[in-house]
Design a binder for these strands. Structure first.
Lengths: 231, 231
DNA sequence: ATAACTCTTGATGAATTCTTGATGCCGGAG
DNA sequence: CTCCGGCATCAAGAATTCATCAAGAGTTAT
């Protein structure tokens, strides 16, 4: 966080609300970027890496929740949702999707700013060691771009392969049990299908390891699970 | 990762609201402690180290905000404020004092629970960085990552070896009887198979001790059991 | 509708781990 | 001094868990 003020990404399509928010932020030393669609919002989130994201759920293209989910795939940047819908169900859905706070319109400037401060407080505390690009040896996983490289070559992963890899990246260095991985990739109902894991680990190794027989990154912990080796 | 459910400290004096919250939490697998005064709340916060604190601002003795401030002096445990006062000014004051969320009465059970989940998510992420690691001399056991080091070298343990070691770590310094260890590792049916213990203690010593003949960590208590020496 | 890609599932040999018995050591008791 | 019980160690077969190949089912894109 530079001394130029925290950077807020504002994803909002209504011009009136945008003007209101712009005024509130500007007068309090925040820098901000704007986006008026979900697509644009996602692009800005990846390219500008804001300190906090202010997201209106009622966007013209696609669901705001979907956007939140997409963003949460690779970053923990706080998302503060603002919405006209005040139903409890809406709040629960947004918060469980990964939003960190939920404000119902209309709301006061001061409350908005206070909740933004809370979000930034959290972000500051969590910021240490939160690199959206994982690197270990010749392996590089770019979460925001959803791309994977070995050396200089990009490798294509299927959706399942990628999910498995991100699960490992998320707790890189730690041992993840079979159950943990299965739950993360195939959902809570597949917790017993250990065989899936074996098949996909072999495929991942064939794509990511120089010598799949002697894995340097994707290590198996016999009787326990797997882990992604750091360094 | 205890499966007993997160521990909530509930600081609330109104009996009716307390009953409501108790029901909401209980039916969702939370454990909780209660306090009805600020003084008691502070005491519980320090002694029980809850995962999240649910704080009503309208306490009989002293200001709830004061309590929040006192708690924030030494811990970042999430504080979710619930209050009858819905003025913007109140919210701002609470949030800036260190509260992580602010709910105005009346509120729905589902929203409360969702916001609790958010708070716990934050706490979990904040805690993820620093693993509680057991250390004794050159022996280091990182339980969350399931990794064991001797000096700077990581050693690989089989599931059974690791279970045995964690049983000893769990009561480090104390003597564990043969029966206790056998029950912990092999289950209640193997309580007689003392031989298992000998075999695995030998293996553990070979992996963890500089000189397996003269163990510095894994000490045998003749006729009783074994213990992991602290230091 | 077709083709290309992805996921699921079964079969098989390889690798690791667990169990079990045999053997030797040491100190105390007879 | 010798025997005995508790302990440590070694090693081999049994049991479990893994890696890998391949084929058919299911999906998605064109």
């Amino acid at each position: 966080m530079s001394d130029a003020g925290p950077l807020v990404l504002l994803i909002e399509d209504e011009p009136q609300m945008r003007r209101f928010l712009r005024a509130a932020l500007e007068s309090h030393g925040y820098r901000f970027v704007e986006a008026t669609t979900a697509r644009e919002g996602l692009a800005q989130a990846t390219s500008r890496t804001p300190d906090v994201i202010l997201l209106d759920l009622g966007l013209p293209d696609g669901d705001g929740l979907d956007l939140a989910r997409r963003i949460r795939e690779w970053t923990t940047t706080p998302i503060v949702v603002i919405s006209a819908r005040g139903k409890e169900q809406d709040k629960v859905a947004a918060l469980d999707t990964g939003a960190d706070d939920y404000l119902t319109k209309p709301f006061g400037t001061e409350e908005l700013l206070a909740r933004l401060r809370v979000a930034l407080r959290h972000a500051a505390r969590a910021a240490a060691g939160d690199d959206p690009v994982f690197v270990a040896g010749d392996l590089r996983v770019d979460l925001p771009a959803r791309r994977v490289f070995v050396g200089n070559d990009e490798v294509h992963l299927t959706p399942t392969e990628y999910k498995l890899l991100t699960a490992l990246v998320h707790d890189a260095g730690k041992v993840l049990t079979h159950r943990q991985l299965l739950r993360a990739v195939w959902g809570p109902n597949a917790v017993e299908h250990t065989h899936y894991l074996r098949v996909y680990m072999t495929q991942l190794r064939h794509k990511l390891e120089r010598d799949p027989t002697r894995p340097r990154h994707l290590q198996t912990e016999p009787g326990v699970g797997y882990r992604l080796k750091l360094e």
